[in-house]
Each structure stands twice: as structure tokens, then as C-alpha cells.
Amino acid sequence: MNPKPDNKNRLSLFGLLGLVISRDLMLAMRRRADVLTTLIFFVMVVSLFPLGVGPEVDMLRKMAPGVVWVAALLSSMLSLNRMFSADYIDGTLEQMLLAPQSMSVLVLGKILAHWMLSGLPLMLMAPVLGLQFDMSGQALWVLVVSLLLGTPILSMVGAVGAALTLGLRGGGVLVSLLVLPLCIPVLIFGTGAVEAVTSGMEIASHLSLLGALLVLAFAFTPWVTAMALRISME
């Protein structure tokens, strides 16, 4: 009977997390077009609204948070498909399932990388778009904070949807169908915070509810996503 292999070279959980994130970022940097298209889509959708509803500044200012948030929701849906499908097609996902570490940590790494490539750019872009809608400085700040708290939730809940629809025909549309209804609370609290600050109400409750949703999503979705991946790989 041969001895169990020694663990001297075993990667720690943080090491694994770092490895997965840096890998996904490196892949994205070698294929920058994907990240850019999502961002351009976001900018485009937001810019379409004034053309659709007319340029009255008062109305635009009023709709701005909703428009930015809905556009963020849609563009993060667009990028969801990329989260696992490339790894699924070339077999890397099989190897990930065989990783001797917690699958949830691995999934969390992928989710964080996805957020850095989709949520974070949107968040940084949002103030510029907010200016197009004549939002006040204070409102812009709250918008950014609400996106900071909210977009990771979109990536997390989206990961579950992406894992469930892995390799299916028409997976791209299907994943939106599954995930969008689940993201409605994020939309409500995110826009609510911005609207509250413009109408002079307190924003703490909105943001703390968003924070609570973030904690909840953080606690459960990596685990659920790992389970969904196992189901989809069978």
C-alpha cells in the first residue's frame, strides 16, 4: 500500500482563490474585446433612453437611477454566459470539479473575477453616464455606492443561473429568464437609495438592505453554484 501523498505543495484556499481570479483576469486581458463590448452595451442602452423619451432634463433626472440600474442589470446578464461556458467547452471545468479543494471557493473566485470584469467597469462608468442625465454630485455618489453593493449580487445570483444553463441550446436567453426575476430586489433597493437621496430622505436603510442581500448572496450562492455545476456536468 503506498503512502498518501504528502501535502507540502498543497495550495491554500486563499492561494486557490488568487489563482482562479488571476487566471480569469489574465484570460480576459488577452481577449479584451469581450469586456469592452459589455461596457459599450451598457453605455449604449443608457444613452438610448433620452432618445426614446425625450430630452427634458427634469424627467431624465428623475429616471436616471432606474435607467442606469436596468442597463447594469441587462449588461451583466449579457456577460453571464461567459462565466463558465469557455471552461465547459475546453474541459477546464471538469478539472475544476476534480480539484481537491472546496469547489465553493473556486466558484467564488470565478464570481469575483466576473464582477471585476463586468460589475466594476460599470460602476466606474456610471457617474459619467449620470452626468448625461444631470444627476447631482451627491446622487452620483450614492449611485456608485449602490452599484458597488449591488453588482456583486448580480454576479453571484447570475452564477447560479449560468451554472444551471451550462451547455444548453439558447442558454443565453434562458439565463436572463431565470436570473432577472431573482434580481428584482437588488434593482428596487439600488434605485431606491438614489431616489431617496435626491428627495432628501435617509438612504441608510436602502443601502443596509442591499448590504444584507450581499451578505446573504455571498453566504449561499457559491455553494449553490457549485451544486448546480455538478448537476450540469453529469
Binding site: 498543497r10 484570460l27 474541459g91 477546464t92 471538469e94 478539472q95 476534480l98 480539484a99
Partner: peptide, 28 residues
């Protein structure tokens, strides 16, 4: 496990691929 699929990324070079797949398998 080595399946039909190579589990390597076109965008990365051989060295990066090997180091990453070994990392996923848990060894540095």
C-alpha cells in the same frame, strides 16, 4: 483525470497552462 478535452486555454502559453492546471489540481 485526463479526458477527451485537453482542458487547456488557447490564449495562454504552455507554461501558464501547466502551472494553472496543476494549481487547480491543488499543487503549486
Amino acid at each position: 483525470y485526463l479526458g477527451h478535452l485537453n482542458a487547456i486555454k488557447d490564449e495562454l502559453n504552455a507554461l501558464e497552462n501547466l502551472r494553472i492546471s496543476a494549481g487547480l489540481a491543488g499543487c503549486e
